[in-house]
């Protein structure tokens, strides 16, 4: 379980997170929605330790990661967590297979046979085949996203954080990615925290939804109960009246 308590984060004078409270339940999919530039990516980066909060706490499986240094994150938090970046962030100097291989080798110290097996399995489960030796810049947008997901699931993380996995994809591809996220959650039991603008996708695959607005979580609800909420901002947002 990930428990975030009263999290604050500013850049200079500019307040981005202003007291975020959020709980991510095990084996569930929680989707965070919110306008562009409200700090959704900043929130994910705080959880995995790429940014340091100013105050508040982040607890992961009962471990308080607040104030952890890089080494402590590497040892205690990141082995059970992976982030799928919005722009995929595949390492472009190496092939797709080498992208998946790198972390397996350096972080998990796995032998070659096991690494090969995991590369093959993870590419198969995202529906990519025969692209082991292809470089990231030769992949289309949807394939890039899936390769990034493959790189993440090869680590067998307990938690997967997805930063706008469907943004910029056409509806058909968005659907493919949404189904994939659901499949990963159900079949591998990976707890997922997603950032998304794709309201239909949210409703279809998530267990819960939370909305980030002006630095705070203003609504948290079951995904099926989205349309029954009283909060005006939330209602306007999911109906596309504010973007």
């Amino acid at each position: 379980m990930i428990k975030i308590n009263n999290l604050h984060k500013s850049f200079g004078e500019f307040k981005v997170l202003n007291g975020v409270d959020l709980t991510v339940e095990e084996n569930k999919i929680l989707t965070i929605i919110g306008k562009s530039g409200t700090g959704k990516s900043v929130l994910l980066k705080n959880i995995i330790g790429l940014l340091e909060p100013d105050s508040g706490t982040i607890e992961i499986d009962g471990i308080d990661a607040t104030g952890f240094n890089e080494e402590e994150f590497n040892k205690l938090i990141r082995p059970k967590m992976a982030l799928v970046f919005q722009e995929s962030a595949l390492w472009d100097s190496m092939t797709v297979a080498a992208n998946i291989d790198l972390a397996l080798q350096i972080q998990k110290h796995l032998g070659e046979a096991e690494r090969k097996k995991r590369i093959k399995e993870s590419l198969e489960s995202v529906g990519l085949k025969d692209i082991e030796n292809v470089y990231p810049d030769e992949l289309s947008g949807g394939m890039l996203k899936r390769a990034a997901i493959a790189r993440a699931i090869a680590m067998r993380p307990k938690y997967l954080l997805y930063d706008e996995p469907t943004t910029g994809l056409d509806p058909v591809l968005s659907n493919v990615i949404n189904n994939l996220i659901k499949k990963i959650n159900v079949e591998m039991g990976i707890t997922s925290l997603i950032i998304s603008h794709d309201i239909q996708g949210v409703e279809k695959i998530s267990d819960y939804t939370a909305m980030l607005f002006e630095g705070k979580i203003i609504v948290t609800c079951g995904a099926k109960k989205m349309w029954e909420q009283k909060n005006q901002i939330f209602n306007d947002f999911i109906r596309g009246k504010i973007t």
Binding site: E70, A89, L102
Partner: peptide, 21 residues
């Protein structure tokens, strides 16, 4: 140029997220 490009495309953050220094 190479590391700068990696930095701005978040490839360096991606390394860190996978516990690679």
């Amino acid at each position: 140029a190479e590391l700068g490009t990696m930095k701005v495309t978040e490839q360096i953050d991606a390394l860190r997220s996978f516990a690679i220094d």
